[in-house]
Design a protein around this nucleic acid. Structure first.
Ligand SMILES: [Mn+2]
Ligand SMILES: [Mn+2]
Ligand SMILES: [Mn+2]
Ligand SMILES: [Mn+2]
Lengths: 219, 219
DNA sequence: AGATTGTTTTAGGAATACCTAAATTTAATA
DNA sequence: TATTAAATTTAGGTATTCCTAAAACAATCT
């Protein structure tokens, strides 16, 4: 049977695979803040229960059973995030943490009702696709990392990494949120930081920050 | 520290005390569907941690620490119930079960926002008072059990027992929900069942049912 | 009072999900 | 290839929350 713990493992695995990242035990340990030993044990269990296949040092793949569970959980997570943000107006940088708990505590029926209440949104407030009830995951246009934008290019923010609430807090402060238009004014070679214009104001952003923002290039 | 389990114990204890019921170990065991042995152990723990005082055979009293926790949880529970019912339109008889889980998975901040979103409701969809953030519990008018209504008397439903979702389902079917007006048409002495009129339709209700509905007497 | 019934506790376990410290194994590098 | 570094597993625990069966205790009835 699936439990809160197992669901969290599956969601982390799914999310990383979704981004094309190789998922091994230590990555999970780091992201869930759990010891490597505990993760090792849990992976054995999840593997025995046919949720995933795991070849040490080579990475994890979700099996059908695990993928179905993971997609369900991601669906719950993202529907809650969207609902909290759009309907309840919970601040952008707080929704992930809140959804982290709610995702394990709501019936399928409630999730479907929330989805209907919002008129079936396709993407969450971080720009991540919301899996539909039937498991289909909406596709996104080709996106480019902000850090790869050249000087004078403009774009629309379409996705941000939601791993760090501090990052989100800062992005929110400078107005770099989903849908916003920006232009790259300047790029410094020695540290790859950039100056970008958002709503007529200039902001300097580090390379690290720019690597966590994904945008659609204009023209 | 408080956990999901402990919170459930505290909520059950509070809810029964609220109704003036003597709470002993076996009552909790029955309501939480847990063995007497497990309840006995947990009560020892809760007592050691100063959540409650427990004199075997004489009942349980919440101590300050336990009361504060319990009121918080009941607040969460009832705000969720109200929200699910009023905003999301989850059916009446489903909200308790859903709130049962959500109550453990939402921050104080979220609860306050939900409350604000609904304009600070005072009672939940079963007619139970919603404790305020500061711990104050709204008072209700004096209510009378439907089973104690005399023939020809009328009243307004103000509170129902939410222990059984089957009861709620049935009450909903015959329209005996919060705020509805009814009149007692007939009362049968041999089994204390009654015929009551609700919205121009007559319904026969058992004594058992009538003991779980509380109303304000008209005139 | 003695017997019966109901309530509570004890004894002994089980499952889940963690932990630290110490191996072990594999991968990467000099 | 030898060494070092990183990833993984094992060993031995702990905490929490539940279980059944049996014993102990208290309240109530005859
Ligand atoms: Mn979670
Ligand atoms: Mn998200
Ligand atoms: Mn609960
Ligand atoms: Mn209620």
């Amino acid at each position: 049977m699936s439990t809160v713990s197992k669901e969290d493992y599956l969601r982390v695995i799914y999310k990383n695979l979704e981004d094309g990242i190789l998922v091994n035990a230590s990555l999970i340990a780091e992201q869930l803040q759990i010891s490597n030993a505990a993760v090792s044990e849990m992976l054995r269990k999840l593997s025995n229960e046919k949720y995933l296949s795991y070849v040490p040092y080579r990475g994890i793949q979700l099996l059908q059973k695990g993928k179905i569970e993971a997609v369900k959980l991601v669906r719950r997570h993202r529907i809650w995030e969207t609902f909290l943000y759009e309907v309840i107006k919970v601040p952008w940088y707080k929704i992930d943490e809140e959804a982290e708990n709610l995702e394990h505590s709501s019936s399928d029926d409630l999730i479907d009702r929330l989805e209907g209440f919002m008129n079936n949104p396709e993407f969450d407030p971080h720009g991540h696709p919301i899996p539909r009830k039937n498991g289909f995951v909406p596709k996104q246009k080709k996106l480019v990392k902000l850090s790869e934008f050249k000087v004078n290019k403009s774009g629309f923010v379409r996705k941000v990494n939601d791993q760090s609430s501090e990052l989100l807090h800062h992005l929110f402060e400078i107005g770099l949120t989903i849908g916003k238009k920006f232009s790259v004014i300047e790029k410094r070679n020695f540290d790859n930081s950039m100056v970008i214009e958002i709503e007529n104001r200039n902001h300097t952003v580090s390379e690290k920050l720019a690597q966590n923002v994904f945008a659609e290039i204009l023209r």
